[in-house]
């Protein structure tokens, strides 16, 4: 699993949140800053921006560079063109790979959200035997290196006949994204006050009705966050997609990119155009979900 799928559960931290209190550093003007330290800050910002954005820029500019395959290596496209994209989607077969990846990711997200929510409600709302064991298991299982499971899962998928099929990938990615999704959603479910549920019961609602009209809307933000993570897990995954797929009609984007390492050297323009196409949806998701992600981190870090 990749860093985005991070369990950000620091609830055991010694500090406690202090929502009402003013928090240090928030307003830099509180400490009158000297010109020198502000220049230092500016420099820091510059360095961070360059380090973070440079690879992104290089990818995009090369994708637009019509001369990338002719050995052009520059920071600015020498010849702006969409040819690389056209090639990638047309002859490169990327349209197909994008569709496959999208199907796999959506399948993973939908199935994952449903299963994780149900499980999260179980562990957050019910006291039952082995509840702690289940939680510990989910936590530990999250740490299992999926790279170590390629061999047995390949053999299992083979005997089930789901090798070389998108369904096989969906099921595998579902398994990978579940532990984190359950663990995160559990926090969101737990933070919905029981009083609200009880009010619903007093109004005569059944458990199911309460679930749909009280619980679900309140944990929706959590679902968004876990869905983003599931999507990214499925979209980015490489090793299983590489191993499971034989027919290139079934390739996902991560594997499809390898085609541009051709017989006659690497087609960097196409490779970067493909990379850009892969990266954009993920970036859009990250930026859209930025608030939620950071909130999630804060919540995770300070939740009592």
């Amino acid at each position: 699993m990749t860093p985005p799928a991070a369990p950000t559960e620091f609830r055991k931290a010694t500090f406690r949140p202090s929502p009402g209190r003013k928090v240090a550093f928030l307003n830099p003007r509180d400490h009158r800053r000297s010109l020198g330290s502000r220049a230092l800050l500016g420099l820091g910002v510059g360095v961070v921006l360059v380090f973070t954005l440079f690879p992104v820029w290089l990818m995009v500019s090369t994708a637009f560079n019509g001369r990338a395959n002719a050995g052009s290596r520059s920071l600015w496209p020498e010849d702006w063109t969409l040819d690389n994209f056209a090639f990638v989607i047309g002859e490169g077969g990327f349209g197909r790979y994008l569709t496959n990846s999208l199907l796999v990711a959506l399948g993973t997200v939908l199935a994952g959200a449903l299963l994780a929510l149900l499980a999260a409600v179980a562990v957050a709302r019910f006291r039952f035997r082995f509840r702690t064991s289940v939680l510990v298991m989910i936590l530990i299982i999250q740490m299992v290196p999926v790279e170590a499971l390629v061999i047995p899962l390949f053999i299992q998928a083979r005997s089930l006949g789901v090798l070389d099929s998108l369904v096989g990938l969906v099921v595998v990615y579902l398994a990978f994204s579940l532990p984190f999704a359950i663990w995160t959603l559990r926090g969101f479910v737990a933070s919905v006050p029981v009083e609200l549920e009880e009010a619903a019961y007093l109004d005569g609602a059944s458990w199911g009705r309460m679930f749909w009209s009280v619980l679900l809307p309140l944990v929706a933000p959590g679902l968004v966050a876990t869905s983003v993570f599931s999507f990214i897990t499925a979209w980015n995954e490489f090793i299983f997609a590489l191993t499971f797929m034989a027919d290139q009609d079934n390739y996902t984007v991560a594997v499809g990119l390898r085609r541009f390492f051709g017989q006659y050297g690497t087609d960097w323009g196409a490779l970067m155009a493909g990379s850009t196409l892969i990266t954009i949806p993920v970036m859009v998701f990250f930026v859209i979900a930025q608030k939620r992600l950071t909130d999630g981190l804060v919540a995770g870090a300070v939740k009592g």
Binding site: F154, R158, L163, T243, F244, A246, D247
Partner: peptide, 13 residues
């Protein structure tokens, strides 16, 4: 590698 994997997986052409 692709042949070996597809033979192992029974996903040969």
């Amino acid at each position: 590698d692709k042949f070996v994997t597809s033979i192992a997986g029974g996903t040969t052409p």
